[in-house]
């Protein structure tokens, strides 16, 4: 029997400093066992437990797309015991990965629709996965217009800079990358995410929105979408809660009748509106 608590041994093959404040690093991982690497089948929006023996585990969204090959990317904000220890690791280190866990974005069900992707701050990670997946030649033709809206405090706080540039250069993506305030050397858009969404005015007809960001961004983006005619069932959000088991047993990510780890982390706005705000 497979043991869902047992992490797959993985080697850290790359570490990249993402932001100017050095709080976020992207870790590139390769599962040591080729069989396990081949069987690690995931979709954008899923997460994994990053596991450090002797320290513990942290649930982190998968930033890579399965279309990129078997190496996995995780962008991690340094904030607790596990993420602190993770940031101290150098390439070559052996750690563990447990997953893929949870339900990702229902991209398979959204074929034929226009997609609007709205990201704020470092919550862009699983939306990077979604974008790479959607723009893959094997998938791009299955979707209509793709709008990508991403805001960060400063240019130096934007993740995946090179990737953003390639998306901006594509004719089949409406790419809106913005920073909160004007900054030296920044010639892109300026403004908070809700304002950028209002300017981009994505149409709700035959469309879905994937929205990830800090609570304040979500709170103020919501009325903008409503104003544009978006319904709560068209808006997909991703929750983060403290987790341990990752498989819907240990109880701590429980919100209403759902376990964020197993029934989520992706929920529609309509689903979340029926729950206590315990996330």
């Amino acid at each position: 029997m497979n043991n869902p608590y047992l992490p797959y041994p993985a080697r850290l093959t790359g570490v990249r400093e993402e932001t100017e404040d050095k709080s976020i690093r992207t870790f590139r991982l390769e599962l040591l066992d080729p069989g396990q690497a081949g069987a690690f089948a995931y979709v954008p929006g899923q997460f994994a437990e990053l596991s450090l023996a002797g320290v513990g585990e942290a649930p982190i969204g998968i930033a890579s797309s399965p279309t990129e090959g078997q190496e996995l990317l995780f962008s991690v904000f340094r904030t607790g015991k596990v993420t602190e220890a993770l940031h101290a690791l150098a390439p070559g280190a052996v750690m563990g990965v447990r997953g893929p866990l949870g339900k990702g974005f229902p991209l398979g069900d959204l074929k034929g629709e226009n997609l609007v992707i709205i990201a704020g701050g470092f919550a862009v990670t699983t939306l990077r996965s979604a974008m790479v997946w959607l723009l893959d030649p094997a998938n791009r033709g299955d979707f209509g217009e793709i709008t990508f809206i991403y805001g960060a405090r400063t240019p130096g706080m934007l993740l995946y800079r090179e990737q953003l540039a390639t998306w901006a250069a594509r004719a089949d993506v409406a790419c809106h990358v913005a920073v909160d305030r004007p900054a030296p050397g920044w010639d892109g858009q300026v403004g908070f995410v809700p304002q950028i969404v209002a300017e981009a005015a994505p149409r709700p007809e035959n469309a879905a929105a994937l929205v990830c960001g800090p609570p304040a961004m979500i709170k103020y983006t919501q009325p903008v979408l409503s104003e544009l005619g978006w319904q709560d069932g068209q808006i997909f959000l991703s929750l983060e809660n403290r987790m341990k088991c990752g498989i819907g047993v240990c109880g701590r990510c429980n919100v209403g009748p759902y376990y964020v780890c197993k029934d989520g982390p992706v929920f529609t706005k309509a689903e979340l509106d029926l729950l206590p705000k315990e996330y």
């Binding site: 497979n2 869902p4 498989i247 819907g248």
Partner: peptide, 9 residues
């Protein structure tokens, strides 16, 4: 629980 992972062993 855990889908493909099977039961809590």
């Amino acid at each position: 629980s855990g889908g493909a992972f099977g039961a809590d062993p």
